[in-house]
Amino acid sequence: MSASQSRAPHASPAVSAALVAAAVGIVGLLIVVPLASVFFEAFAGGVAAWWTALAHDPDTRHAIWLSLTVAPVAVAINTVFGVAAAWLVARFRFPGRSLLISLFDVPFSVSPVVAGLALVLIFGRQGLLGPTLAWLDWKVIFSWPGLVLATTFVTLPLVVRELIPVMEAIGPEEEMAAVSLGASGWQVFWRVTLPNIRWALLHGIVLANARAMGEFGAVYVVSGHIAGATDTMPLRVEKLFQEYRTPASMAVASVLAGLALVTLVAKFVIERRLEAESRDLEAARSTAETPA
C-alpha cells in the first residue's frame, strides 16, 4: 500500500464540511438556481402554453430552424479546419508555429461584438468586399452566410485546441508504420489517425456545437436582427424579452438550456472515454519500455 492511498485526511472534519458547504453554496446560487429557474419559468404556464409559445409563433419556429441549420455548418467547417490545423501543428515544426498556436486562441479573447463588426467591415455593403458581393448579388451580412461566418469565428479554437494535445501525445509512430506498410495518405488518416483521435474530436465537436447554438454577440451584429429572417434562437430570446413577452422568451431559453444539459451529459461520457484512452496509451507505453 503506497503512502498516498493510505493517507488520512488532514483537514479537520469541521473545516472540510464548511468548505464543502461553501462550494455547494457558490455553485448552487450562481449556477443551479438560475438553471432551475429557466425550466420553472418556462413551464409556469403549463406544458401547453410552453408548446404554443414555441410551435405557434412563426418567427420562433423560423429561429429554431435557422439555429439548426447554421450551427451544423459552422461545426463542420470547424471540424475540417480543426483536424487540418492540429495535424499541421502536431506533426510539423516550422517557423511561426508557436505564433500560429497563439493565433488559434484569438477568437476566444476577442469580444464577439468586435468579431461581428470586423466581418461587417469586410462583407457588409460598405465593406471591403461589399461592391464585389453586390455585383455578384451575394448577400453575406444580414443573411445566412454571415451567420455561419460569425458562428465559425467564435467557435474556431474549440476543435483544434482539443486535438493538438491528443495528437502530440499519440505521436507519429503509428502513422509512419502505416506509411511503411504501404498505406496512402487518406488511408493513414481514415484507418490510423482518425480512430486515435475520435473521442477528442467528438469532444471538440460537442463543445463547438454548444457554443454555436448559443452564440449571441457576433451573430447579433452580423444578422441585423430581423425577426423571421435572421434571428437565431438566442436572438429570438432577446427579442421576445424586449417585447415584454418573458414567458415566450423563457420557453425558447428552456430549449437552449435543455440542449446545454444534453451537451454536458455527452461531454461527461466522452471525457470518461478520453480518460480511459489516455490510460491505455500510458499503459501501452510503459509495457513497451520495460522489457518482460
Partner: peptide
C-alpha cells in the same frame, strides 16, 4: 460553458 449567454442574462 454550455449554457448560451443570452439564457444566462435572461434568467
Amino acid at each position: 460553458l454550455a449554457l448560451p449567454t443570452a439564457v444566462a442574462g435572461l434568467v
